[in-house]
Design a protein around this nucleic acid. Structure first.
Lengths: 337, 337
DNA sequence: ATTGGCACTCGGGACACCGGAGTGCCAGGG
DNA sequence: CCCTGGCACTCCGGTGTCCCGAGTGCCAAT
């Protein structure tokens, strides 16, 4: 039913349509690619492909364009991931190497990705919950107010202010700080909750109410959406492509952290490159866009995800190559930090 | 030359054009506003206004639309700032009140402003250089690496990592930390440089190379563009308006921190609301947009600026009202932190 | 100074026309 | 059995024409 030639035809249609943005017809197809058959034959194949839902014609007597399903087949079976040349790799490496602080790494990454693919790039901050505490710091602001700074081994810094129920002296803060660091340094964030549960016993009763306030803020910061920050770049690239639902919706979706989280969440959990095409994205407003994403992390396990978002009519092999390459290097940089 | 009626005509043209987005003609003008003269009279007035460069007709025998100069006159002399109702004020207040941490305040502010005006909102982080150091913290990461955390009295936290030329022990770090806080806490950031200059004398020679590394990072973080971060929201609102140069350029400009800085910088330094219209913005790509901006701050002096950006065809009175109101409340919130 | 009248201009929508690209189908040939 | 050339058909999109309406500038009259 789907012999080799039909697959070749589908591949050719996708490639041509991506590069020209115009429905592709049988004549052009045989010219541009060296298929050794006549247009009529191709037409028969195309009829079958249409029957199966891989391509459609926008109107009678026009060329064909791929459907979401067509792109899906293309990505799954017809195209590889375009590898990067060593020159390109070096460029990535040097571009990212300049940055040490985490914010800087993320910022550069997202810009790089946007520039490489000429699409919108999205990068999720390394997830708190999979990393460990490197250090906790308490800084008195007033006598009933502390600034809590939480530093993770991925270089992330969270800051929260804590209202104390009672005034606390310098030494009581010092004591609490020492205690926290003694028990929490090096702990995975997932373990923190249970450790904190046992701490009150170690504290003199008179200090407990204040300590409790600090504890609850720590716990809050673990579950909060702060851990799920996502950065976006390259929105200008959307202006080129024209969208069915108007790009208003797309731009709107891009500003909603929650929506982006869901989008990246939907795209699987593997470290390898995954692709979600068109309506496969349940996220409203992004149903005529595709997402190419991958996990990245300092070790073997993924800390977070990054990817590019563009019209379904998108150069998947190149995008996948870029995403994979960037994810790898970011992982390396992070591991070295 | 510019009698009252001509000014009234200009005002009417601006108002109508802003609300309809279509060139406005003499007939419609007398209908909608109750000018007690005939269309012919208005036509004469319009001819004069065109002569003076306040309005133009897109093509012969079409209505008139305001020029940048026309909007300028409108803003300067013909329109007030639309005050907010007390209900609206309360809404702003409660929306902003929920946030304590600085990031949160800025984030909410920019979203609020975008929503109120249905334009793009830009908010600059409170400038470091005008605030003072509340606390410095040094956290050992490895024995040749420190994390420097700098906390200002505006609630801002800067983090940088420091590479040490030589391994440093726990106590040497503690000592340095104490020294830094003793001499720097409470200092305006502008004073820091000179204070640091004198510090090496207080340090034992063997520690000086390490201390110097820390010092240079502190100084760096003062001059760096970090202090100039700008947040943007509401880009989706641009999709509605159509731009001469295509919105690609506008979106691109919005992603360039540097460009935005220049834009806000151009817009004067006063705390009060200022407006830059169309080509008055030298920034490339934003010459068909207008900026309504104001300074905000915790005390009497402005710490930074915020504003909204939209097409020159924009509801200035409302935008100015929103910017002024939001700037005020942000100032209050910040003062209370 | 204002007004009504009048001739003029021009953009843009409605309509028809046509060419070109593309299709489906069919009958004949390897 | 699959491929191919041929043919009739469809329909999009660009082009040209026409016309209407909104708007203008000017002028003479009040």
């Amino acid at each position: 039913m789907l012999d080799d030639r039909k697959l070749a035809v589908l591949r050719a249609i996708v490639e041509d349509y991506v590069s020209t943005n115009e429905p592709v017809g049988s004549k052009n197809l045989v010219d541009r690619h060296n298929l050794d058959v006549s247009p009529a034959t191709i037409r028969n194949d195309m009829a079958v492909l249409e029957e199966l839902g891989f391509i459609v014609q926008p109107h009678t007597s026009a060329g064909r364009i791929p459907t979401d399903l067509g792109y899906r087949l293309f990505v799954d079976r017809l195209s590889g991931i375009k590898p990067f040349t060593s020159a390109e790799r070096r460029a990535i490496e040097t571009f990212l190497a300049g940055a040490y602080d985490l914010d800087e790494v993320v910022m550069r990454t997202v810009r790089l990705l946007a520039q490489l693919t000429r699409q919108v790039a999205v990068v999720q901050y390394p997830s708190l919950s999979r990393s460990a505490i490197r250090h906790l710091e308490l800084v008195p602001l007033t006598d009933t107010r502390l600034l809590l700074v939480l530093i993770t081994d991925t270089g992330r810094v969270e800051q929260r202010s804590v209202e104390l129920p009672a005034p606390a002296g310098e030494d009581s803060v010092t004591h609490l700080r020492a205690l926290l660091n003694a028990y929490l340094d090096g702990r995975r964030l997932t373990e923190v909750a249970s450790v904190i549960d046992e701490l009150p016993e170690r504290i003199e009763p008179v200090e407990r109410t204040n300590a409790a306030a600090v504890f609850s803020v720590i716990l809050e910061s673990l579950v909060e959406r702060h851990e799920e920050r996502i950065v976006v770049a390259g929105a200008a690239n959307l202006a080129a492509a024209d969208f069915a639902k108007g790009l208003h919706d797309v731009l709107e979706a891009l500003e909603e952290q929650v929506v982006l989280m869901r989008l990246l969440g939907e795209s699987g959990d593997q470290a390898s490159v995954t692709v979600r095409i068109g309506a496969e994205n349940q996220v409203e407003g992004l149903q005529s866009t595709s997402l190419v994403a991958a996990g990245y992390g300092s070790g073997e396990q993924a800390l977070a995800r990054l990817g590019v978002l563009g019209p379904t009519r998108m150069d998947y092999p190149t995008a996948m190559g870029a995403v994979r390459a960037v994810a790898r290097y970011v992982g390396q940089i992070l591991a070295g930090t």
